[in-house]
Design a protein around this nucleic acid. Structure first.
Lengths: 181, 181
DNA sequence: CCTTTGGAGTTCAATCACTAGACTGATCAC
DNA sequence: GTGATCAGTCTAGTGATTGAACTCCAAAGG
C-alpha cells in the first residue's frame, strides 16, 4: 500500500511502516510466524500476485526480518524463515491481530494463542499475564476456531492447529490436506 | 499503500489492515492521539497531499475511529478527534511505534510515553508494569527527545512536550510556534 | 534420453492509487 | 471590500498492483 517512505517523519511509527507498512508485508510475516516457509505456500494462502510476493520476500530478506535458505529437499528452491530480528515484531503483530478480531469479531473466526509453558491465553501484545512476560514465538501455540466461512486451501487447513508457532509446514501436511478429496 | 481489502483472508490481522493499513492512516491516527485535531495541522505535520488527507479522514470517520465535529472557534471548519473505539487502537499503535524506534533507534529521536498516575515509562503495547494495566491515552503524557534533525514545523514543535496525549493543539500553540521568527 | 510436471520467478499491459499543484468557496481580519 | 487562510476538490502525471502469460530449472516417469 505504501510503497515506500515517510522521509519527513522522525517517529518510530514512520520507520516501522517503511519496513512493514506495504500492502501484504504484514500478512507475509504473520504466515512466516505460523510456519509457512515456501514461496508456493505463501502464494496459495494469501492469494497474492506472485510478482508482489517475490518483491516483498526480497525486501524482507534485505531488511533482515526473514532469512532465505536453500530447501534441503528441493535443490534450487528456497525457504523463508523469520530471523531473530524479525521475531521481535511478534508482540506488535499480535496486538494488531487482536484488535482486528475484537473489532470485527462477530461473524469472523477467532484464533487463539496460548503460552505453552503455562497454558494461558495471551493478552494483546503477546503478553502472558501468568508468567508476566511477553511470550516468545517459540513458546506459543495457536488454534483456529473454524467457521463455515473458513478457507479450504491446504495451507489454511494445515494451520488450523493446535500447532506450535514457527513449526515448519511440511510437504506432507500440505499434500495431505490437498490430498485425495 | 494498500488501498483496500484482503477479502480472502479470514484473520483478524487482515481485518485490521483493511481499516488502518492504507498509507498514512496510522500516522493520522497517531497524530490524533497526540492531540492534532485540525485538517491544516495534520497536513503541515505529515506532509501529506491534501486530497489523500481528505480521503483518509473521511474513511476514519466512516469507520468510527475518528469523529468529526464543528470547530467552535471557526464556523465552517471541522475538528477530528479519536472516538472511544479509535482509542482502542492505542496499544497496538504503541507497540508498532516502539518496534520502529528500537529497530532504528541509533540516529533517530526517541519519544517517551509515561503513565501519569505513577510516572512509569510504558512498555511495548502501552503496558504499565507498575500499575499492571494498559495505560489508557487519558493517563499518558509524551515527550520528544530533540535531535538536530527534528522537524521545525509548528505542530512538531508544539508536540515536543511533555504534554498529555489527546490534549488538543490550540491555535495559540501552533501560532506561537510558527510565530515571530 | 526425452518428456512432463510443478515450483519459482519474470515480464507485460491494464488498472488503480498516490502525488503535486492549481483551483474553488467560505470565513475572517482589517 | 480586499486579502489571507482554511478545507477541500480537480486534474494530469507518476508509480504501484494486478492477473495472465511466459521462462527457467529440477525431479519424476517412461
Amino acid at each position: 500500500m505504501l510503497g515506500n517512505d515517510y522521509e519527513g517523519q522522525d517517529c518510530g511509527l514512520a520507520r516501522a511502516l517503511e519496513v512493514i507498512g506495504e500492502r501484504w508485508t504484514m500478512l507475509i510475516l504473520r504466515d512466516a510466524f505460523y510456519g509457512v516457509q515456501r514461496f508456493s505456500d505463501f502464494a496459495v494462502h494469501l492469494d497474492i500476485p506472485r510478482a508482489v510476493l517475490t518483491d516483498r520476500l526480497r525486501a524482507l530478506v534485505e531488511r533482515g526480518l526473514l532469512e532465505r535458505l536453500p530447501d534441503p529437499d528441493h535443490a534450487g528452491r528456497a525457504l523463508y524463515r523469520p530471523t531473530a530480528e524479525g521475531r521481535t515484531l511478534w508482540p506488535a503483530l499480535h496486538a494488531l491481530m487482536r484488535w482486528g478480531t475484537e473489532q470485527f469479531g462477530d461473524g469472523h473466526a477467532a484464533r487463539y494463542h496460548r503460552h505453552t509453558v503455562c497454558g494461558t491465553d495471551l493478552r494483546s501484545g503477546a503478553y502472558c499475564p501468568v508468567c508476566d512476560m511477553v511470550a516468545p514465538l517459540e513458546e506459543v501455540e495457536s488454534e483456529r476456531v473454524p467457521t463455515e466461512a473458513s478457507r479450504t486451501d491446504p495451507v489454511s487447513v494445515a494451520l488450523r492447529g493446535p500447532r506450535p508457532m514457527l513449526a515448519p509446514l511440511t510437504g506432507a501436511e500440505t499434500l495431505a490436506a490437498a490430498g485425495p478429496a
